[in-house]
């Protein structure tokens, strides 16, 4: 019977959050080369590298109804070729299998980083905005390639309902990505004289958007936003941080050095996020998918502190 939802990258922080909330209503299987700490008993994990030929067997059994593809890594310390191989070839492989073995639904988790923070950005980028994220940050080329490949796939395989989700900066008690790590710094750098509007989304809200994308009929590319946008300084104030203002002309060469000597984990091009807008319009997802964030702005911001939103329907119970 075709009843399983396969989640790639399930052992990641976000993957586990999604799996735990999804497996109460769906039959969930996972694909990841890492072990799944605290895996629910009835969840089947295929511990495999996504590029292995053996992955095809997972599809061949014909039980998979939907594929949630979030095995897209972004480790700035790893080489370009490793990124390319894992992200681009991995995506191509699983999406091809999905089409070949009659999977009805494919959801790909991209991000708004594909647009890139730029001084001439619209304040609310829509889904048809050009993907210029790699212009100043060549190392994320593969993330754009994954998004583009998934877009092609929509046209190539109209029989598969494909959804591409581009969430804004994901934060939450479990997530350990660049934006949430930045917000966890006690004394984060800011660029003197710059204070862009920033959008954050709670990990639970991303999980909900992915769940909504599983509904029959949903297809297309969607920006996924949290409960609004605020100046970066407001977020840091809410978190009680003491930012260090660094002149932007100095910050880049300085961070370049620190990066080269491995003193920091923040790649220098990420500074653009502290300087320019990369904010999007999420109204299409609201209209088509019925997605609305359930965490408030304050809850979303404070979630990096490990607090869970009060009153929100929380499925993350370990």
């Amino acid at each position: 019977m075709r009843d399983t939802v396969l989640i790639t990258g399930i052992s990641g922080n976000l993957g586990r959050t999604l799996a735990r909330s999804l497996h109460r209503t769906e039959k969930v299987a996972g694909l990841d080369r890492r072990p799944f700490a605290g895996k629910p008993k009835d969840l089947e994990l295929h511990q495999l590298d996504i590029r292995k030929k053996k992955v095809e067997d997972v599809f061949r059994r014909g039980e998979i109804r939907a594929l949630l593809h979030m095995a897209i890594m972004h480790d700035p310390r790893l080489s370009q070729s490793e990124h390319h191989s894992f992200n681009v070839l991995g995506t191509k492989a699983v999406l091809e299998y999905a089409a070949k073995y009659g999977v009805e639904k494919v959801v790909v988790l991209s991000s708004t980083n594909v647009y890139g923070p730029r001084p001439d950005n619209d304040n609310f980028l829509t889904e048809d905005a050009p993907l210029l994220g790699s212009q100043n940050f060549p190392d994320i080329r593969d993330l754009i390639e994954v998004d583009m490949y998934a877009q092609q796939y929509i046209w190539k395989h109209p029989e598969v309902e494909t959804v591409i989700l581009r969430p804004v900066h994901i934060v939450g008690p479990h997530v350990r990505n660049a934006p949430s790590n930045y917000l966890r710094l006690k004394r984060p750098w800011v660029l003197a004289g710059f204070d862009p509007m920033v959008q954050l989304i709670h990990e639970e809200d991303v999980a909900r958007a992915m769940q909504l994308s599983l509904r029959p009929g949903a297809r297309g590319v969607y920006n996924v936003v949290g409960p609004g946008e605020v100046p970066l300084s407001t977020i840091l104030r809410e978190l009680g941080r003491q930012p260090i203002p660094v002149p932007h002309l100095l910050a880049r060469p300085l961070l370049d050095r620190l990066w080269t000597y491995r003193i920091t984990g923040f790649p220098p091009p990420e500074l653009d996020h502290l300087q320019f807008l990369c904010t999007v319009d999420g109204s299409k997802a609201e209209k088509d998918l019925g997605y609305r964030p359930s965490s408030t702005l304050r809850e979303t911001i404070r979630s990096v502190l490990g607090e869970t939103p009060a009153g929100a329907n929380l499925s993350v119970v370990t």
């Binding site: 001439d120 304040n123 003197a192 004289g193 100046p231 002149p247 932007h248």
Partner: peptide, 21 residues
């Protein structure tokens, strides 16, 4: 938006980059 201090000042008083969108 590339000018330090000017960029956030304009934004806070409601002045927006003139893109058609």
């Amino acid at each position: 938006p590339t000018l330090p201090f000017v960029a956030p000042f304009f934004a806070r008083i409601g002045q927006v980059v003139g893109t058609p969108e």
